[in-house]
Design a protein around this nucleic acid. Structure first.
Lengths: 215, 215
DNA sequence: ACTGGGTGTTACCGCAAGTAACGTACTGCT
DNA sequence: AGCAGTACGTTACTTGCGGTAACACCCAGT
């Protein structure tokens, strides 16, 4: 039917338009940070506000679309490092390094992904705490948990354990990376090595200090 | 001098007032989340906006004051667990459990601390990335790093290593806790155990799965 | 009595999110 | 040709919040 054709055509051009809008939004957000106003984004795209709202609903929708784009990209490169054919230690180090290199190369993107302006929406008065934290961390945690569950032989309760570890390791990587990016206390390689050592149980192996405090 | 007396009296009552205001703000923020408006907080305190601004400068100042209060409280209880006279594994588990119990008991406080509304201020166009992430995490990371440096005998470059580990472990705890608080996939004790196991190197020890993907 | 610094108020500004109402061009149907 | 629908686009508005200016009161000390 022609109607079907028309709608598909329109959908296609709508998607095209959406992509253009997202790219404009990207430029503005990367330039101005998350405080970028809808007006500014619309201006950058050469249009006016209501069109943005027609496409993305509200500011949260636009930001979610943007975040998804970048998140997908980052996750793809992480997956590559994670799936490389190498021993586990090397895979871990390579994944850590990939992540750190990414946030080092695009700090503005990183900042946007990790600290997207809070949803100012009403509703959800209840106990949905935590639902607002950066979705990127959640996705990375779940993904890593799956990889661990697939590749590592944990005993019973393996899946629960794997998911916990996935989120934990991602959190470790994130917090250490965030701090490192701010203070730059050491090289990337040193950071990678220290984190991998931590995961490799060196905290458990190390002795107490002889000159400990008191006892 | 009387003038001195007066000023001290006034300072004291000013501090008193400040505390009252903070408590009112606390109630509102815990009820409405970080979207609580200055008007609402002022109303809860029985006064009007400009007074809040006289005391705290701007919204960021108020939120910083609030956050400092809660952060201090949480850090104190963590320090207790961290400094208990027990072996390392037990201390780690007890610290994890203390943290998780806290965020479980006061999810609203937790949410406020971890996702304080972004500074909408201009300025700081530069590369101060990461400076905005929840200061609680930074403080916890630094503190833990110090404890590790004091108590654990790492080789050379011990301090750098300890700080990295401090931030990494705190991040692990935070991310896992955030996820756990949202989905409640297991009991607190199980989570504590799994995380401690992770830190104890069980990821390195475990074998590859026999039925791995492909190879 | 008057001045100074504290407390408090009302009324306003600027700005950003989001919406309503309206106009326009293209496309298919009759 | 003419009509209806629909997406594209605009201007102009409302609402709500952060923040401030201007003014009023009270109460010490000179």
């Amino acid at each position: 039917m022609d109607i079907a054709h028309r709608t598909t055509d329109q959908q296609k051009s709508a998607e095209q338009r959406r992509r253009e809008l997202l790219e404009a939004a990207d430029r503005v957000v990367l330039r101005d940070g998350p405080k970028a106003s809808m007006n500014a984004i619309a201006a950058e795209a050469g249009i006016t506000k209501p069109i943005l709202y027609r496409h993305f609903g509200d500011k949260g929708g636009l930001y979610r679309a943007l975040a998804t784009r970048h998140t997908d990209a980052l996750l793809a490169s992480l997956r590559a490092a994670l799936d490389a054919p190498a021993d586990r230690r090397r895979r871990v180090e390579s994944t850590l390094d990939t992540y750190l290199a990414s946030i080092e190369a695009m700090p503005q993107v990183y900042r946007f992904l990790m600290h997207p302006a809070e949803e100012t929406h009403q509703a959800e008065q209840g106990f949905d705490v935590g639902r607002h934290s950066a979705p990127l961390l959640r996705r990375m945690g779940e993904e890593l948990g799956q990889v661990i569950a697939e590749r590592v032989d944990l005993g019973p309760a393996a899946e629960a354990q794997a998911r916990i570890w996935g989120h934990g390791i991602v959190g470790m990587m994130h917090a250490a990376g965030d701090w490192w990016l701010g203070e730059r206390p050491c090289s990337r390689a040193e950071l990678v090595r220290a984190l991998a050592d931590l995961l490799w149980g060196r905290l458990a192996e190390a002795d107490d200090r002889a000159d400990g405090p008191g006892f």
